[in-house]
C-alpha cells in the first residue's frame, strides 16, 4: 500500500494531514502569505486608497530613510524602549525565583503578581494616566512623601518613555509565570549534584538555574523585541505620540501613515522593514535555540 501511494502526487497520509490542517493552511495563504506579498508590492507604490496604486520604485523607502522629522524619532523611541526588556527580565525572574522557594501561600502571591497583566489595555491606560498624574497621582504623592523630586511623567518629553516603562513593568506577572514554569521544570537531580559539589545558592543560580532556563529567557527577549515594535495602544490612548514626539513609536507612526495620512505606500514600506527585523529575529530563535519548546510526548 505504501509503495502504491508514493506514485500519486500526495500520499494518503499527506492528504489526510493536509485536510486536518486545512483551516490553518487556507488562513495562512489568504491572511498571511498573500498580505505579506501585497504589503511588499504596495511598499513600492504611491497608494492613497481612493485612487489605484501607482508604481514609484524605492521612493517610499528613500523618503522614510531621509525622514528625520518622524521616522527616525519613531525608530529611536522604539529602540530606547528596548531598555524595558532587561528590566522586565530581571524583575520577572526575581519574582519567579522568590516564588519558587516553596513557601506557604505561593499560589496567592503568584495570583497577586499576575493580576495586573490581565487588566484590559485601555482600562490600564486610563488607570496609569491617573496614577502618573503629576499633581494628585499615587506615584508622585508617594515620591513626595519620601522627598524624592517628582517628575511630570507623561507630560515631560524626558520622562514620558520611562513612565510607560514603569506602567509596563507593573504587568511583569505575565513573564513571571513563564519563568516560574521554566524554573519548576529544572530537574532536581541537577541541584542535588550541585549540592554534592558544595555549591552555594548563588553558584547554583549561575551555573544550574540560569543555563537550564536560558532558552526561555532568550525566547522571551526576542518576543520582547518584536513586541516593542508593535507597541501601539498605550501610546495611542495615553499620549498620541507626545509630548514633543517623545512617545511616537514605530507602530504608532505606521498607523498614522496608513489611517490618518492615508499614505498606504509609506505605511507598507514601514511594515516591510518591520517584517525584515522579525525575519532576522525568527531566524535567530530557530538557529540558536532548538530547545525553547518542551515537547512532552514527542517521539
Amino acid at each position: 500500500m505504501r509503495t502504491n501511494s508514493r506514485k500519486t502526487f500526495l500520499s494518503r497520509e499527506q492528504r489526510l494531514g493536509l485536510w486536518f490542517i486545512s483551516p490553518w493552511l487556507i488562513g495562512f495563504v489568504l491572511l498571511t502569505l498573500y498580505p505579506i506579498l501585497a504589503t511588499l508590492y504596495l511598499s513600492f507604490t504611491d497608494y492613497r486608497v481612493l485612487s489605484p496604486p501607482r508604481w514609484v520604485g524605492w521612493a517610499n523607502y528613500r523618503e522614510l530613510l531621509l525622514d528625520t522629522e518622524n521616522f527616525w524619532p519613531s525608530l529611536g523611541n522604539t529602540v530606547f524602549f528596548f531598555l524595558e526588556l532587561p528590566l522586565a527580565l530581571i524583575l520577572g525572574l526575581a519574582l519567579a525565583l522568590l516564588l519558587n522557594q516553596k513557601l506557604r501561600g505561593m499560589t496567592i502571591y503568584r495570583t497577586l503578581f499576575y493580576l495586573p497583566s490581565i487588566v484590559p489595555v485601555v482600562a490600564n491606560a486610563m488607570l496609569w494616566l491617573w496614577l502618573l498624574n503629576p499633581e494628585h497621582g499615587l506615584v508622585n504623592t508617594g515620591l513626595r512623601a519620601v522627598h524624592i523630586p517628582a517628575p511630570a511623567w507623561l507630560a515631560s518629553p524626558l520622562w514620558a518613555k520611562p513612565a510607560l516603562i514603569v506602567m509596563d513593568l507593573w504587568a511583569v506577572g505575565g513573564s513571571m509565570v513563564i519563568y516560574l514554569a521554566a524554573l519548576q521544570g529544572v530537574p532536581t537531580s541537577l541541584y542535588e549534584a550541585a549540592d554534592l559539589d558544595g555549591a552555594n545558592a548563588f553558584q547554583k543560580l549561575v551555573s544550574v538555574t540560569l543555563p537550564a532556563i536560558s532558552p526561555v529567557i532568550f525566547f522571551n527577549l526576542i518576543m520582547g523585541v518584536i513586541g516593542t515594535f508593535q507597541y501601539f495602544t498605550q501610546t495611542f490612548v495615553m499620549t498620541k505620540g507626545g509630548p514633543d514626539k517623545a512617545t511616537l513609536f514605530y507602530a504608532l507612526y505606521l498607523y498614522q501613515n496608513a489611517f490618518q495620512y492615508f499614505r498606504m505606500g509609506a505605511a507598507c514600506a514601514m511594515a516591510w522593514l518591520l517584517f525584515l527585523v522579525t525575519l532576522a529575529a525568527t531566524f535567530l530563535v530557530f538557529k540558536t535555540s532548538a530547545g525553547w519548546v518542551y515537547y512532552e510526548g514527542e517521539r
Binding site: 498571511t32 504589503t39 518576543m223 508593535q230 518591520l274 530563535v285
Partner: peptide
C-alpha cells in the same frame, strides 16, 4: 508546516494588517 506555523506567531500584525484591511 508546523515550523512555518510557529514562525507566524512571531509575525507582527502590522505586516499583514493593511492588505487585510483593503
Amino acid at each position: 508546516m508546523f515550523y512555518l506555523m510557529i514562525a507566524t506567531i512571531m509575525l507582527p500584525a502590522q505586516v499583514t494588517q493593511l492588505p487585510i484591511f483593503l
